[in-house]
Every structure is written in C-alpha cells, then in structure tokens.
Design a protein around this nucleic acid. Structure first.
Length: 421
RNA sequence: GGAGGGGUGGCUGAGUGGUUUAAGGCGCCGGUCUUGAAAACCGGAGUGUCCUUACGGGCACCGGGGGUUCGAAUCCCUCCCCCUCCGCCA
C-alpha cells in the first residue's frame, strides 16, 4: 500500500511512476476521498472535544448536587451528531482504504521501463545451453519411462495439474527440498521455519494477494481460509501487526507446497510439470532496514543462483521491466532455467524487493537507530521452485538411452544414486 | 464439540461508571554521584491520526466489532485468541 501522504505531497511523481507500469488508477478519486476524510475528521473531533470537556464538568457539578439536565440534553444532541459524522468518516475511510489496497507499488528508479515482458532485460547468463548429439526428450517422456510420476492417476483422484511423484521421482523431490534447505540454513545464514499451508484473509491482504488476485487462489469459505500460493504469505505475515524486537535483518527460509488455480491459463503450457496447480517450493524471506534492502536483494538473487550453480544448471537472470512486475514489487529479478526438452527458458525464481509496500499493509514495523517506529522493508525470492527445477534436471541430465544423470551435489541426498535408469 | 477461567503499555500487575491526563513494580533512556561501574536519588519515555510554517494543541486506542450513557478499561451483545478439565483424534 502506498502512503497517502506521499500521494498527496508528490502527486505528479506518483502519477508518472504508476503510468510507467501501465496501471489504471483513479488518483483524483483517491485524493478527493482523502480531502473529505480530513474535513470530516476536523469537524467531528471538535465536537468530541466539547463533549469530553462538558462531560467532565457534569461530573463535577453532580458531585456538588447541582442540576445538569440542560447540559445533558445539549450533549445528547451533540452525541447524535457525532454518531452521524463518525459514520460518514468511516464510510469515507473504508472507500479510501479499499481504493488504496488496489494501487500497485511504485517501481524503483533502477527498474527498466517497458510495457510488457519484451521490455525485460537479461542481466547475466550462467552456463551454455547443452548441445545434444541426439534429439532431447521432454521431461514427461523421460519421467514416464523411468516411472518418476503418474499424471493420469493424479488427474483421476484430484484433477489435471496436480502431479503425483512416484518412487525415485518422489525421492528426488524430497532430496531437492532437503538440499536447498540445508544450503540456505548452513551456508547462507537463513533460519528455517515451517509455517501453516493455509492463511486467513488478513494475511492474504498483507502480502498483496487480496483483494485483486482472489480468483487465483483456492479458498475454503467454511473456515475463511485460503491455500497459500507461496510461502511468502505465511512467512511475511509472521510479524504482521508487530513492532519487531529482534535485530534486523531477519532472514527466513521455508519449504511449503504452493497452490495456484492458474485461472485464465487453461490450455497454456499445461503439459507435464511446467504449469501445475500444486508444486513444492523453498522460499527465502527477509525483513530488513530500508537502507540495506537493495543490497539484500542482490544477495537474495545470489543465494538462489547458488542452488542452480551447485546443480550444474544453465540459467539467466532477468531484470523485470515496469510493465511486467507483479503488483507489490518495487523491483524484481526473475531467474530462468534452460530446459532443452522445451527449447525454452523456465522461470524458477522471482526475487523481489517490496520496500515498505507489504509492511504498510501488514503493519510490520521496527525501531530504527533513532528509536522511531517505522516500517521494515520486506523481500522474498524462490530458492527455488521445484516442479520446473525437476524439469530442468531431467531434460539437461538425459542420456541417449533415456536415463538421467544427477548432479553430484544430490548424490548424498539420493542414497548415492547417481543416475536414474 | 462441551464446561469453566482469562485477554490492560516492552514485561509484570492494580483498576466494576466521573481528579485515571491508565496506580505500583521490573526493564529501558538521560542526569547527579563515581577513576569506571553498581547501588541510591532525580527526570524522561507508547501507537496512530488531524490541525499548525513552527511552537503547540485536539481526537482515538485497555483482544476485534457493535451497543447503553452527558460520560465506558469498567455495564450489555457478539466474534477472535489463550489457559484448565472432559470428549474425539494422527
């Protein structure tokens, strides 16, 4: 959420920044609500002041046995008017808040300007796409022959897009989770947390999934809960409505499954594991002081890259442009893996700095060096998302006979199994 | 799911309708004293928001929301959470 004071005082800057990301926002309407809110407040608070003073006076008069009927009658009328004005204030505040919750974050000055994904910039590429002396197969063929997963049975028990891993496929999934958590906790300085997989509406609003993206989530109306689309939600909301007492930065990592309805994506990239309704992911989340958040963003990307480098995979880093960034991000890097069976790059991580956008929504604050309470900056990034990581491992490690060589870093996690065959 | 007990500031803990502008204690910050520290003493300190160039002032906040009243931490309704016991259960 943007600070209404910033909108009020730097209206033209805000307009320009929102336009650069192609956002349609009724700033005039928001500013008008803001004006009305303040005008109403001034009026009702003057009345309340009078009521407080007179009520105290009534108390004093009554103690000395004097008649207060006239004053009480006057205050009753004032009370009615206060009730009326309070309702107006609430109405305006609700409308203002509702509008502000739908305004996206402002892009950082370093974000490339562009209208859509074609404006994204390749920051760096690591490794070379592997050359094959045979026709590389897509992962669904490799996985079927090696009995790593069973999409047909999973579709029968649940539905399309809910993968079922089998045998060494299931083991590979678990091994990768373990490998990534170990790396982040033992070498990158993160603390592991294991959060709930469902969150309430307030948490979903805090990180920015609600109100705009409701149709992208699985909802359990009976309990008012949503299945998490990413561990970002529970882990960022860990400190919701708190003034954090622990020293910053706080770096957390969590494994969770992720659930996404992928509304509107039907028929697109739906084959195999590329786009699914449930996938596993290891996430990294940081709470930092504003001064260091961009430094922390670069470190976050490095921590995600380390996973891929140790697995010997070819990837590239994209700086997303203004028009392609997600709602809450001020700056975002995507990491894409090369998948030879698709002849395409697959997004396996999105590393974002939200600055104080989520912190303001979720009321996550800390005391700065001067002792003043202020909003933290929040960041998160996948480190990394599993299903597509498995795709890249299978397609890059495949041999002419259809077997798959696993990178050395995984051998200890696979009981020494070096090759799936 | 049933019954009972609770939710007050960073922590602890008083407060059942009007000098409560939320007592006291602990912790915290500043000062005096000291070579330094501790102790003691003195002082300070919440969050949000509105008005104001500033100085300063107002309003709101005692788990959330609503109500009664001239006036609510206090009374009423409702929801949430925590604790104890019972039931069920991996």
């Amino acid at each position: 959420m943007l600070d209404i004071k910033v909108i009020r005082e730097r209206e033209e800057d805000v307009r320009r920044a929102l336009a650069s990301r192609g956002a349609q926002v009724d700033l005039d309407g928001i500013l008008e609500l803001d004006r009305r809110r303040r005008a109403h407040l001034t009026e009702v608070e003057t009345l309340k002041n009078r009521r407080n003073v007179v009520s105290k006076e009534i108390g004093t008069l009554k103690r000395t046995g004097q008649d207060t009927a006239a004053l009480q009658a006057e205050m009753r009328a004032a009370g009615d008017r206060i009730t009326e004005l309070d309702q107006q204030v609430r109405g305006v505040e609700d409308a203002l808040n509702e509008a502000l919750l739908r305004v996206p974050n402002l892009p950082h000055a370093s974000v490339p300007v562009g209208a859509d994904a074609s404006g994204n910039q390749v920051v760096r590429t690591h490794g070379e796409p592997r050359r094959f002396d045979f026709e590389p197969q897509p992962h669904w063929q490799l996985g079927k022959r090696l009995k790593l997963f069973d999409f047909e049975r999973a579709a029968r028990m649940t539905g399309a897009g809910f993968p079922l891993y089998w045998g060494r496929g299931a083991r590979l999934e678990r091994a990768l989770i373990q490998f990534m958590l170990d790396l982040h906790t033992k070498e990158h300085g993160y603390t592991e947390v294991a959060p709930p997989f469902l969150c309430n509406a307030a948490s979903m609003t805090g990180t920015g999934q609600l109100p705009k993206l409701a149709e992208d989530m699985y909802h359990v109306p009976l309990d008012g809960l949503y299945l998490i689309p990413t561990a970002e939600v529970p882990v960022t909301n860990l400190f919701r409505e708190e003034i954090i007492q622990d020293p910053l930065p706080i770096r957390l990592t969590a494994y969770t499954p992720c659930f996404r309805r992928e509304a509107g994506a039907a028929g697109k990239e739906t084959r195999g594991l590329i786009r699914v309704h449930q996938f596993d992911k290891v996430e990294m989340v940081k709470f930092v002081e504003p001064e260091s958040s961009y430094e922390e963003l670069e470190r976050l990307v490095k921590d995600a890259e380390d996973v891929l480098q140790r697995l010997g995979l070819t990837y590239r880093i994209l700086a997303l442009c203004t028009g392609d960034m997600s709602f809450a991000a001020a700056k975002c890097y995507d990491i894409e893996l090369w998948a030879p069976g698709q002849n395409a790059w697959l997004e396996v991580s999105s590393c974002s700095n939200f600055e104080d956008f989520q912190a303001r929504r979720a009321q996550i604050r800390y005391r700065n060096a001067a002792g003043k309470v202020s909003y933290v900056h929040t960041l998160n990034g996948s480190g990394v998302a599993l299903a597509r990581l498995v795709v890249a491992l299978l397609e890059n490690g495949q041999q002419a006979d259809g077997s798959v060589c696993l990178p050395e870093a995984l051998w200890p996690y696979m009981d020494g199994v070096k090759r799936l065959e």
